[in-house]
């Protein structure tokens, strides 16, 4: 009978699914790490044309420039990266809320004409919602790190 001569499938369905799953899982991991960025310095950012993450802190002694009358979509400031190099950073949005309170900044962006153009600014302000200072003149209390 024909039915008995019918070809046996080359592979079991479960094996096919297994292979597809593994292939997709590998694709996910490769895509993630292929597109993963790294935390670098301004010097690293100079050497690449793609976007990268730069961690540093705001130089509060220099001007934070934002003039809504001239351009509501231009904000610039100076940031020191982890190696201590300082560079002007340009951001095409208004100054983020509470920017001056930040103690660490993570920028995502790229170098353009010796300025760092940030597309995203993430601020780390542990004190944003957790104000650790007692509102009392003589008490400069800092919550101990074990809390």
């Amino acid at each position: 009978m024909c039915s008995q001569t019918a070809l046996k499938p080359l592979m079991k369905k479960s094996s096919i699914i297994g292979i597809v799953v593994i292939a997709i899982a590998i694709a996910v991991i490769v895509a993630t790490y292929g597109s993963a960025s790294r935390y670098g310095s301004f010097a690293d950012a100079r050497s690449t044309s793609s976007e990268m993450h730069v961690i540093g802190h705001l130089d509060k002694s220099k001007e934070l420039y934002y003039d809504a009358h001239k351009d509501p979509n231009y904000f610039s400031f100076f940031m020191k990266d982890k190696n201590g190099n300082e560079l002007k950073v340009v951001y095409d949005k208004p100054e983020p809320e509470d920017f001056e309170r930040s103690d660490q900044i993570v920028l995502v962006g790229r170098m353009e004409n010796n300025e760092f153009h940030a597309s995203t600014i993430n601020m780390k302000c542990p004190s944003k919602y957790k104000n650790d200072k007692l509102d009392i003149p003589q008490a400069n209390a800092n919550k101990s790190s074990s809390i």
Binding site: T32, Y33, S35, A36, S37, R38, Y39, E51, M52, H53
Partner: peptide
């Protein structure tokens, strides 16, 4: 290690 999330994170998530 010290890898950062992809810079086009939202796109990556959206597409996948």
């Amino acid at each position: 290690t010290n890898i950062a999330p992809p810079t086009n994170l939202v796109t990556l998530y959206n597409v996948f």
